[in-house]
Structures are given as structure tokens and as C-alpha cells.
Design a protein around this nucleic acid. Structure first.
Length: 532
DNA sequence: TAAAGCATGAAGTCTTGT
DNA sequence: ACAAGACTTCATGCTTTA
């Protein structure tokens, strides 16, 4: 970290105009016209997308809130003895004064800070304000770096931070395909919290356009190609996605993003809590599990399983060694185990998960996808495409108190009924469920489950989202009395990392059905908004 | 004809080493 | 800081089998 600081700075900062452009347009406005892949303009609900709401970010409610960056920032400030952190009682200060104080401690002048706060609006977070300040400084930073300008210590510090911000910004730009802000995956991937990890309280303020009715809940893979989640967020009323890994809910990982307008306070998990480790979930494997296989969680449950030839190759590779194989073989075996989610079922014997086990790990009732005309291959495929019940139910649990008499559900891309099963297991009565699912075997599974669980409500099937045009939706809303929840996870085929052939992003053949989710949700919002 | 079997990397992010 | 390596991923398309 040594070296000539000023030389480093002047050599490394490229004084391009990107940030100046940003500052001129500040606050960043989200897209005002949206087009679908076909290029047709998509009609948005009233002011929903035209009045770009201020970017809302979830805020951790703690004394030393905000991002890692901010924490590092504070660390550095306290390291450099030019800043004395006197313990002040901030209780009596207003929010604005607290923000001002924070910014002052970060090295900004009160004047700079208050201008930025005015520009960013009353609801802006510290991050947004510092972003603005940084961009503003970039526009006139050249002045500061003139050789005869004797920078004050404060400026020096400020410039260093400026440079760091610039680096961060360039890194983020690199991560992004286009402009707009980056959506970064949180670490740990716990969204607005998971059970057992309740030390933090999360708060968020939804953009006005996102407010219900109805509530909506959208799901897709977290590790989508660049820019996909930005687009999804932009369409879904600028609601910040909640990224959650289901490894905090069960013994298998499942990294997913969820965009929803549900309350996030007072969530509760399904009981009993499912097993959280492989050994607890699959106790029979314990006997054969070698000590050098240190896995405690399975990787993502996918639609395909490892081949018999693969497990045979592994068996032969292991049989050459009595006892513990050499590291080279261990690595080969572990790599394949992780890639295919293999488990130990005998000496030197690995196997892919049975469909029953996948069902259990995902939180579905036993035999949910078994029989009734579904093939083994299709069973894996349907399960691999489904929700993790405990995760989704945790998010939906807030509905229980809101709808004691039950809910009307519009379930798009229902699959094997993850949404329905989640609500049922929460004890939320299902009044009318309108379910759209292209696959006949999946529709049969949901229908079978509906009958076997003696549902009192009414299940209405549709095959294709295209059938739900404005008239049909209006008619449904009229006959049902409005939907309380519009839920769905649109196809991920063209987003998923496993797709070798057509990982085409959100505009891909199947994944573009996201736009139908938005279209239908927006229609429902529109029609129900009119009726109020 | 339907179902099962099987080979097919890239694109990210994160971690580690220099 | 930077490069290189490690790690993970709601799958598709072709071939074989029942």
C-alpha cells in the first residue's frame, strides 16, 4: 500500500465523463418506456413506471448500519488519528442531523453534505448520498489535483477515498453490462433474514407503485447472466430482490432471488424444522461417508442426475486403494460428488439422490410427484424446477394473520404446486386458486394433491399464460372477487448456468415468459386498482 | 413411441497466492 | 493490486433401450 500516493492517484484515475453524466442526470431515473423482446411497448399501470421512485434499499437496523464499504470507511477514519471519534449521544438528533453527522465524519463538509442530501431527497440512504457526493467530486476533481494546489489533510483523505470509490465504481461497471446500478448478491445470502439468524432486524420501504393489492411474489435463479436481475427489478416496480440460499432452510443449497411486496416483519418458519445437514437428512449415508468427504450440505438440486457409468468409474477408481485414497483421487471423487450431488450408499459406492429424497429435501410431502403417470425422468425434472417449500413458506408466512379466512391465489408457472403446498402447510386456507402450468403431468400432480388434501376451495387450471388476456383476467377477478397474491417463478432455462446451449438471458425462448408474469401482474394491479 | 442414458463447458463469483 | 485457480450452476440434445 506504500508508494507515492499522489502519483498513484493521478496516474490511475482515468478522468472519463461517465460520472459527470451521472451527476447531471441525478437522481438516476429508471426506464420510462419498457419494451418486450418483440419490441412492442409494454403498457404500464398508470404512473407505475413513469414516476421513478427513489431507489429503496433494505437497511439494517443497527447502530453501525450499512454496507461493508461504510464499515471499512469508518475503520480507516478511526485508524487515521486526524479524526477523533468522540462518543456523541445521537439519540436526540433528527434523522437528517444524524445523516449529516455521519457524512461529516466521513470527511465531507457540512455544506457538501447538505447539498447532496437536498438533491437525493429525504429518503435517500447514506450510500446513495455518498454516491452522489463522489460523482459530484469527480466532476471537479481535476481542480484538486493541480500540482500547485496544496491539499489540506482533509482533502488528501478525501481524494484517497475518492479514488477508492472510483475503483469500486469501475469494478461495478465491469460487472454490469450497461448503465444503472449493480445488483450484488449478498453474503451471506440470507435476504431479509432466515430463521435462527434473527440478530439483525431488517426494514425496507417499498416504492409506492409496488404496493398491493395484490401482493406479488416472483422467483428465479440468483446467478443469472449480467443485467437480468436489474431488468426484473426495473419491471417489478423497482423492488429490490431478496436473494436467499435455501441451505439455511434445508440440507441443500438453492440460490434464488425473490422480488415481492410482502411485509418482512414477523416471519415464522414451518415446523418441524427440516434437517439442515446431509447426515441428518440422509442418516443411512453416514455409515459409508468417508472422513475426507467434508460436505455437510448438498449443492443445488437440479433436473438431471449423475449417470450409472459415472458412479461406476468412481467405484473403480476407489477400489484400487485400501483405506484412504491419495489426494489426487480424493479430489477427483469430491469434484464429481459436488457436481452431481452424489451420496455414499456403500463402500466405495456413490449414488445420485432418489426422487423421494429430492422431494423431502425440497419440503414436499412424500410421494408428491410419484405415480399418476409421471415418468422417473420427468419427476426429477419437475422437482428440479420447483420451489424449496420451507424457504418460500417462510416468506409467505406473514400472510397468515392478514388472511385468516383464506386467500385467492393466482399462481403462474405453478409447476408441481410449490406455492400451493407452501400456503397449505402454513395453514392458510386456499379459497380460489387459478393455476397456470404448461406441463400436463405437473397439472395432474397439483390436481392430485388438491384432491388428496381435501381442499375446500376451487382450483381453476390454465395451460398457457397467453390464455390470460385482459378480458379473461377481468372476468376472473370479477367472479373470484380479486386476487390476494400473484405468485410465480418463470422459466430459468435461459438463465441457468447449467445450460450449455442456450443461456440467452431474459430474452431467451423460455425465460422471456418473465414478461408475461409482469404483464399479468400489471393487469391484475390495474383492474383491481380500478375497482377500489 | 416414450423413457432412460449419457456426454457436452461457459460464465460467473469467490478464494488464494504473489 | 493483480492474476490465477477453485467453485457452482432450477439444462440441452443426441443416442440407446424398453
Amino acid at each position: 500500500m506504500g508508494g507515492n500516493a499522489s502519483g498513484e492517484e493521478s496516474d490511475n484515475i482515468d478522468w472519463d465523463t461517465e460520472d459527470e453524466l451521472e451527476i447531471q442526470n441525478f437522481p438516476l431515473s429508471s426506464c420510462s418506456t419498457l419494451t418486450n423482446p418483440g419490441g412492442e411497448a409494454i403498457v404500464c399501470a398508470g404512473e407505475a413506471l413513469e414516476n421513478s421512485p427513489p431507489q429503496q434499499k433494505p437497511v439494517i437496523d443497527s447502530d453501525h448500519s450499512s454496507s461493508d464499504y461504510y464499515e471499512n470507511f469508518l475503520d480507516e477514519i478511526s485508524d487515521s488519528d486526524s479524526w477523533s471519534e468522540d462518543e456523541e449521544n445521537t439519540e436526540s438528533l433528527s434523522d437528517k442531523e444524524k445523516t449529516l453527522l455521519s457524512l461529516a465524519k466521513m470527511g465531507y463538509t457540512v455544506e457538501e453534505a447538505s447539498i447532496a442530501m437536498d438533491r437525493c431527497g429525504p429518503d435517500a440512504s447514506i450510500d446513495e448520498i455518498t454516491d452522489f457526493l463522489c460523482a459530484a467530486q469527480m466532476a471537479k476533481a481535476a481542480d484538486y489535483l493541480l500540482p500547485d494546489d496544496e491539499p489540506k489533510p482533509k482533502r488528501k483523505f478525501f481524494e484517497r477515498e475518492l479514488w477508492k470509490r472510483k475503483k469500486q465504481r469501475r469494478y461495478e461497471k465491469r460487472m454490469m453490462s450497461e448503465d444503472s446500478e449493480t445488483i450484488r448478491l449478498p453474503k451471506p445470502m440470507i435476504g431479509f433474514g432466515v430463521p435462527m439468524e434473527s440478530s439483525q432486524t431488517f426494514h425496507r420501504t417499498l416504492p409506492e407503485a409496488a404496493m398491493g393489492p395484490p401482493y406479488f411474489y416472483y422467483e428465479n435463479v440468483a446467478l443469472a447472466p449480467k443485467g437480468v436481475w436489474d431488468t426484473i427489478k426495473r419491471f417489478l416496480y423497482d423492488v429490490e430482490p431478496e436473494f436467499v440460499d435455501s441451505k439455511y432452510f434445508c440440507a441443500a443449497a438453492r440460490k434464488r432471488g425473490y422480488v415481492h411486496n410482502l411485509p418482512i416483519d414477523n416471519r415464522f418458519p414451518l415446523l418441524p424444522l427440516p434437517p439442515l445437514t446431509i447426515h441428518e437428512a440422509l442418516p443411512l449415508t453416514r455409515k459409508w461417508w468417508p472422513s475426507w468427504d467434508t460436505r455437510t450440505k448438498l449443492n443445488c438440486l437440479q433436473t438431471c442426475i449423475g449417470s450409472a457409468k459415472l458412479t461406476d468409474r468412481i467405484r473403480k477408481a476407489l477400489e484400487d486403494w485400501d483405506g484412504e485414497p491419495p489426494l489426487r483421487v480424493q479430489k477427483y471423487v469430491l469434484d464429481e460428488c459436488r457436481k452431481w450431488n452424489l451420496v455414499w450408499v456403500g463402500r466405495n459406492k456413490l449414488a445420485p439422490l432418489e426422487a423421494d429424497e429430492v422431494e423431502m429435501l425440497l419440503g414436499f410431502p412424500r410421494n408428491h410427484t410419484r405415480g399418476g403417470g409421471i415418468s422417473r425422468t420427468d419427476r426429477y425434472k419437475s422437482l428440479g424446477n420447483s420451489f424449496q417449500i420451507d424457504t418460500v413458506a417462510y416468506h409467505l408466512s406473514v400472510l397468515k394473520d392478514l388472511y385468516p379466512g383464506g386467500i385467492n391465489l393466482l399462481s403462474l408457472f405453478s409447476g408441481i404446486g410449490g406455492a400451493e403446498v407452501s400456503l397449505h402447510r402454513l395453514g392458510i386456507p386456499l379459497k380460489t386458486v387459478v393455476s397456470v402450468e404448461i406441463s400436463e403431468v405437473n397439472r395432474n400432480i397439483v390436481r392430485g394433491w388438491w384432491e388428496q388434501t381435501n381442499q375446500k376451495g376451487n382450483l381453476i387450471d390454465f395451460t398457457d399464460v397467453q390464455q390470460l388476456d385482459g378480458d379473461r383476467i377481468e372476468q376472473l377477478i370479477h367472479s373470484v372477487g380479486g386476487f390476494d397474491l400473484v405468485i410465480g417463478g418463470s422459466p430459468c432455462n435461459n438463465l441457468a448456468g447449467s445450460n450449455r446451449h442456450h443461456r440467452d438471458g431474459l430474452e431467451g425462448k423460455e425465460s422471456a415468459l418473465f414478461y408475461d408474469y409482469f404483464r399479468i401482474l400489471d393487469l391484475v394491479k390495474c383492474i383491481m386498482g380500478r375497482q377500489q
